[in-house]
Amino acid sequence: MVRKIVRRVVPTVAAIAVVALTLSLGNWQTRRAQEKQLLQQQREAADRSAPARVPPVLLADADVQALEGRRASVTGELLADRSVYIDNRTHGGIAGFHLVTPIKIAGSGGQGARPVHVLVLRGWIARDPHERTRLPVAPAPAGPVTVTGIAQRELAQALELAASAPPGPEQRIWQNLTVAGYRRWSGLDLQPMLIRQTEPARGPEGDFDDGLVRDWPRPGLDVDKHRGYAFQWYALAAATAALWIWFVVWRPLRRRAGAAGRGN
């Protein structure tokens, strides 16, 4: 009797655990697909709207939240000598860097106040294939320019097995960058956000060609991948339930029915 109970209870508990887990994972993948689809819709709406201007005064957190994901533009002077290169960024299978440069916002710093800056993720540039620490040259426009792109709080962070030491004063190649980390390193007053540049900087003489690649991935690019993963998890849950029904419910019923038939 005890063995029969164990033979029913153990598979049932295991099946419930597997079904609960796989359904949870399937629901998570479905939510990820919905979130990315919503982001894609928001991005498409932002692309059709006029860019919001980044002001020459520090933004509050609520203002940054309202700007995030929207087109934004800023006018000022790019400080090329304060640029940093984010390592281990690839494009088309080629190793390179993401170039981040602060821009001093026009109209800030008057009457003895400190100027306000905002970081600009300008684009991707290939690294030297022979000497990885040699910084590639990326020209920057002189004088005032207007940069347009997508406002975001932070850059995507690459996985690090151990926390990196803070970069030195002259260190220009970084593994990851945060706005707060760059603020400490540079000493600049920064907006609590950055702009991912999507089109050439525009100056008095027109667009400036800096040769950087700005082929940024779209948020909805891998929606179908998440849906595919969700289908796999749901299919595994269904298969587990079907196996439980077959081995724990249907087969014992058939055996009892067969035994009863032989007894008659």
Rank of each mutant, 00 (worst) to 15 (best):
V248L: 07
D81I: 00
L161S: 03
D224Y: 05
G26Y: 14
W244D: 01
A72V: 07
R48D: 14
R172K: 13
P102H: 06
Q37I: 00
H130R: 13
W28D: 14
T198P: 13
A106L: 09
T148A: 03
Q37D: 10
V57E: 06
I16Y: 03
M193L: 13
D47N: 05
T12C: 03
Q152D: 06
K4D: 11
G149H: 03
G211C: 08
H117C: 01
N27L: 15
T90L: 10
Q42R: 12
W250E: 02
L99H: 06
V19F: 11
R3P: 02
R262P: 04
T178L: 01
G149L: 04
F97I: 08
Y229M: 13
L155R: 10
L39P: 00
M1A: 13
Q171N: 03
W216S: 14
P115G: 04
Q152M: 06
D61E: 11
D210W: 07
L221R: 12
I125W: 14
R31L: 09
F231A: 15
E131S: 03
S73A: 14
P217L: 14
A242W: 15
R255W: 02
G181K: 06
Q42P: 00
A230E: 03
Q171P: 07
I16R: 01
N176Y: 07
P136F: 11
L119A: 00
Q42N: 15
A162Q: 06
G206C: 08
Q157K: 09
Q34D: 12
A52E: 14
R256K: 07
Q175I: 01
R122A: 14
T198N: 05
A259G: 07
G181M: 04
L236D: 06
G69D: 10
P219D: 04
V6K: 05
D210L: 05
R132W: 09
L190H: 04
L155W: 09
V57G: 07
A257E: 03
L159Y: 15
D47F: 12
V213L: 15
V2M: 11
L99A: 03
L25S: 11
A238Y: 12
V100P: 01
W233Q: 11
Q41R: 10
Q152T: 12
G168W: 02
R251V: 02
V249S: 09
F208T: 06
A259W: 02
A20P: 01
L253Q: 11
R31S: 14
D222P: 01
R82M: 05
A241C: 03
F231D: 05
E77Q: 08
V18H: 02
P144I: 01
L212D: 01
N88D: 09
D215R: 10
P192V: 12
P192D: 09
H226W: 11
W185E: 12
Q111H: 14
A62T: 15
V223R: 01
I173G: 02
A15K: 05
A50Q: 13
L253I: 10
Q197I: 01
R251Q: 07
I16G: 00
L119F: 08
Q157L: 05
K36R: 13
A95G: 13
L212A: 11
I103V: 07
R153A: 15
A142W: 00
P11K: 04
T30K: 10
R53C: 00
L25R: 12
P192S: 00
G181S: 11
D207L: 11
K104H: 04
R114M: 01
